[in-house]
């Protein structure tokens, strides 16, 4: 089987590798780069747990071939914080508003929220629910997640 060379910027670092064309982006991130913060949830393009940013836009990394990321830039949940004590405002908001229970969906929720707030810094509740339409949480319901996004928007200076 032919392997294909790829060069992908992941969380600011350029990684050169060789992949089988059938390799999913999420598997490359986890198995080859060890970046296991991005998780596989449903494996059917539904749940959004594996969401990462591709050139700044949210995508489900179980539904992208690693080879299609060649030459592009990926941001994972592990690329957001500036250090252990300096979380991204969206991460802080989820903690402060109890926006998670088991936490499995959280990496995807965070990445989708970062994308949502980059496009719409001051979303309404309805826009938040629509913006997170591609992310499923099976623990909490969405009440505190929505609250977390509102809190993050405020912390990031979007909310009025």
């Amino acid at each position: 089987m032919t392997h294909v060379p790829i060069s992908v910027t992941v969380d600011g670092t350029v990684y050169d590798g060789e992949v089988e064309p059938r390799t999913l982006l999420v598997h490359w991130l986890r198995d080859s780069l060890g970046r296991v913060g991005t998780v596989v949830g449903c494996d059917t393009s539904s749940c959004g747990a594996c969401t990462v940013l591709l050139d700044g836009r949210s995508v489900k990394s179980c539904s992208v071939l690693a080879v299609q990321a060649d030459g592009h830039s990926i941001t994972t949940i592990q690329g957001l914080a500036e250090g252990e004590d300096n979380w991204h405002p969206v991460q802080t908001a989820l903690k402060e508003c109890h926006g998670l229970q088991c936490g499995y969906c959280t990496p995807g929720m965070v990445m989708s929220t970062v994308d949502l707030l980059s496009e719409n810094p001051n979303p309404t509740e309805e826009e938040i629910r629509e913006g997170l339409h591609g992310n499923l949480c099976r623990c909490t319901g969405y009440h505190n997640i929505v609250k977390s996004v509102q809190h993050a928007a405020e912390a990031m200076g979007g909310a009025k």
């Binding site: 393009s45 959004g48 969401t51 591709l54 836009r57 949210s58 995508v59 489900k60 539904s63 992208v64 989708s112 994308d115 949502l116 913006g131 339409h133 591609g134 992310n135």
Partner: peptide, 9 residues
């Protein structure tokens, strides 16, 4: 159509 992540791709 679908959700934001899928509409991006």
């Amino acid at each position: 159509v679908a959700d934001p992540q899928i509409r991006h791709r």
